[in-house]
């Protein structure tokens, strides 16, 4: 039953032509993807990977160059495909002359809800995102985090079966993030399909069950978060590591990077990390920490994207 999928795409492609410099950008490049109903799905990728364009294609905001897609079994070119779909755009600018209650009412009406249903739903949602006291205040006086929470609320107004969130925690403080995460959990329990675009790996890892990694418009890895992150290792951080030693360790490590003035390495085995400790000490470096890790999505992400980049330079 192919209608069972929440999202189904075949060779979805969008090529942007650069008007001045010539040439073209393959923002989304032949993406074939299937997201089952009730899944929480994360699309990860570096800046400019094509995540936003992919979602905009599905919602009919950007027109495709090639390919097809279905949302909840309906052809994505038909407006009805968006009936049971909620969307929180990246960098949205919701009309600031509305109050929170007014905006939710407007959004509900556009989704076809009758006035009675809107009246019942609005206070519920404002409570959910913690904006009840702000119901009658114009958006022009909201902070960025509040706007983001309201953006989430408007996406939920008509109780959608499929939810697209593009960088949902952008500009939200840690407490707000925790709340958003809790809301998403609850939605998942109710069987809502949630599709999250993010470059915040930790967040996708914590919330999503399935993940795909996108780079240069293509899906370069996908699977269950569980499977992708399987594998253990150790993370070593050290200070004052000379350049030569750093290069030597890089060859040994899965990943190597400088972060906050410290060198950070990921090793697969206990033997490797011990060898690395010897090397750091012998070269006059200072150990900061050694932490056992279960391979994080970040490593998978860095590995995949870097492998892609390597292939291209060759």
């Amino acid at each position: 039953m192919s209608d069972d999928a929440a999202i189904e795409t075949h060779g979805l492609t969008r090529i942007f032509r650069r008007r001045w410099r010539g040439g073209e950008v393959r923002a989304v490049d032949g993406v074939t993807l299937r997201v089952e109903r009730g899944t929480s799905f994360g699309l990860l990728g570096p800046n400019g990977a094509g995540k936003t364009t992919f979602v905009k294609l599905l919602l009919g905001i950007v027109t495709p160059t090639a390919g097809s897609a279905r949302l909840l079994g309906v052809d994505f070119r038909r407006p009805e495909a968006r009936q049971a779909v909620g969307y929180l755009p990246e960098n949205h600018r919701l009309p600031s002359y509305w109050t929170a209650a007014g905006l939710l009412d407007f959004a509900g009406a556009l989704s076809g809800m009758d006035p009675g249903a809107r009246r019942r739903r609005i206070p519920e949602l404002l409570e959910l995102v913690g904006l009840r006291e702000w119901a009658d205040v114009r958006l022009s006086r909201y902070s960025k985090g509040m706007l983001q929470r309201l953006g989430l609320a408007q996406a939920l107004i008509h109780s959608p079966a499929l939810l697209f969130l593009d960088e949902p925690t952008d500009g939200v403080d840690p407490v707000g993030r925790q709340q958003i995460r809790a809301i998403l959990r609850e939605l998942e329990e109710r069987g809502v399909t949630v599709f999250v675009n993010s470059h915040l790996l930790g967040e996708v890892e914590m919330f999503c069950r399935e993940v795909a990694i996108m780079d240069h418009g293509r899906i370069v890895a996908s699977g269950k978060v569980k499977d992708l992150t399987a594998g253990k290792g150790y993370r070593l951080t050290a200070a004052r590591v000379p350049e030569a030693a750093f290069e030597e360790l890089r060859a040994l490590a899965v990943t190597a990077a400088y972060r906050d003035g410290l060198a950070e390495f990921q090793f697969r085995t206990r033997e490797e990390v011990n060898r690395a400790v010897d090397l750091v000490r012998a070269q006059g470096g200072w150990l900061e920490s050694i932490i056992p890790t279960s391979s994080t999505l970040e490593e998978v992400f860095m590995r995949t994207v870097r492998a892609e980049a390597g292939e291209e330079t060759r």
């Binding site: 919602l59 009919g60 905001i61 969307y87 949205h92 919701l94």
Partner: peptide, 18 residues
């Protein structure tokens, strides 16, 4: 022009109407 403002138009276009 306000309708096609970046940040608003994407939101409006995602609603289920032609």
């Amino acid at each position: 022009a306000a309708v096609v403002e970046p940040g608003r138009i994407e939101w409006l276009l995602s609603k289920p109407l032609p």
